[in-house]
Amino acid sequence: MPRGEARWAWLLSDGGEPRNWMLILAPLLGWHANGWAGLRWGALAALFTAVLPTLILHLGERRRYWGDRHVRRRQDRIVAAPGVLASVLTGTALLYALDAPVAVVALVTAMVAVLLALLVITFFWKVSVHSAVASGALAVLATVFGPWTFVLAPLVVLIGWSRVRLRCHTVGQVAVGVLIGAAVSTPLYTYLG
């Protein structure tokens, strides 16, 4: 792969990481739902869905439980998933218990559902979490702000391209990730939101 292309692929892959979507989306939806108070709820959601999972993945990488923060090997993902899922579930339970805005609770609940669907698939096959979260985030944005947000669809495609180009996934694994993210998050967010 040409050097410039590789640089773009890494930038898109790192920029399109699941944590980055949640760091932006949770506070944005909180703000949209309830102003400054909602922004704080969104920040709490981001803590449990982005910050703590990133720390868990970093710790696992340092202790050599898996190779890198992207957890590329399918078998390693099964080892990493319980810690990440525990953080997201804890955050979801706290948001429900503390009566957070519905939009924020619906978002993290949809994320839990996407993660569970990906985990089930991961027992048999590797699927792109980057693509699933990107497409799920775009679907939620479209649900909240309307179809004009689909102008961001090329970003989801570019993130998928980066994952294939970096040989982290096949086109099929990216496509299934996109389908799972949108198909699971859209109806659940719509129902709960």
Results as ranks from 00 to 15, higher is better:
166 L>T: 02
11 L>V: 07
148 W>E: 08
17 E>Q: 14
154 P>M: 09
21 W>D: 10
107 L>A: 13
188 L>D: 05
158 L>I: 11
152 L>M: 09
123 F>L: 14
65 Y>T: 13
97 A>V: 08
96 Y>M: 07
10 W>Q: 08
54 T>G: 10
137 A>W: 07
83 G>S: 10
139 A>G: 14
55 L>F: 11
108 V>Y: 02
167 R>K: 12
91 G>E: 09
105 V>F: 12
148 W>R: 15
158 L>Y: 08
153 A>Y: 01
129 V>L: 15
103 A>Q: 13
54 T>H: 11
189 Y>V: 00
26 A>T: 10
27 P>D: 11
100 A>K: 06
138 L>W: 06
73 R>H: 13
112 V>Q: 06
135 S>M: 12
40 R>N: 07
64 R>Y: 03
5 E>C: 03
69 R>E: 06
32 H>F: 07
47 L>F: 12
179 L>K: 02
143 T>E: 15
148 W>K: 12
159 I>A: 02
128 S>Q: 02
20 N>A: 04
98 L>M: 10
168 C>A: 14
7 R>H: 07
89 L>D: 03
189 Y>K: 07
54 T>S: 15
104 V>S: 08
78 I>K: 14
86 A>E: 03
36 W>C: 04
138 L>K: 05
20 N>T: 01
117 A>T: 10
186 T>F: 13
139 A>S: 15
12 L>R: 05
77 R>T: 04
100 A>G: 09
139 A>M: 05
86 A>I: 01
125 W>G: 00
21 W>M: 11
158 L>C: 10
89 L>W: 12
71 V>D: 04
43 A>P: 01
98 L>H: 04
34 N>S: 11
87 S>C: 13
20 N>M: 08
68 D>H: 02
7 R>S: 05
121 I>H: 04
126 K>M: 01
191 Y>V: 07
166 L>G: 00
178 V>Y: 00
166 L>C: 01
60 G>E: 04
31 W>R: 13
10 W>H: 12
1 M>K: 11
132 A>C: 07
102 V>G: 10
171 V>L: 15
146 G>F: 06
128 S>F: 00
112 V>K: 05
177 G>Q: 03
31 W>K: 00
89 L>I: 12
65 Y>D: 11
92 T>I: 02
28 L>Q: 01
143 T>N: 10
106 A>D: 06
172 G>T: 14
82 P>T: 09
63 R>V: 11
38 G>I: 08
9 A>V: 00
134 A>T: 03
77 R>N: 05
30 G>D: 06
76 D>N: 15
106 A>Y: 09
135 S>C: 14
167 R>A: 07
86 A>T: 04
101 P>K: 03
126 K>Q: 03
58 H>N: 14
11 L>T: 04
25 L>H: 05
13 S>I: 00
151 V>D: 09
41 W>L: 04
99 D>C: 09
134 A>V: 02
114 V>T: 07
113 A>E: 05
97 A>G: 01
62 R>D: 00
73 R>Y: 13
183 A>W: 01
83 G>D: 07
114 V>G: 00
123 F>R: 15
97 A>C: 09
1 M>V: 10
73 R>Q: 15
147 P>R: 14
151 V>S: 09
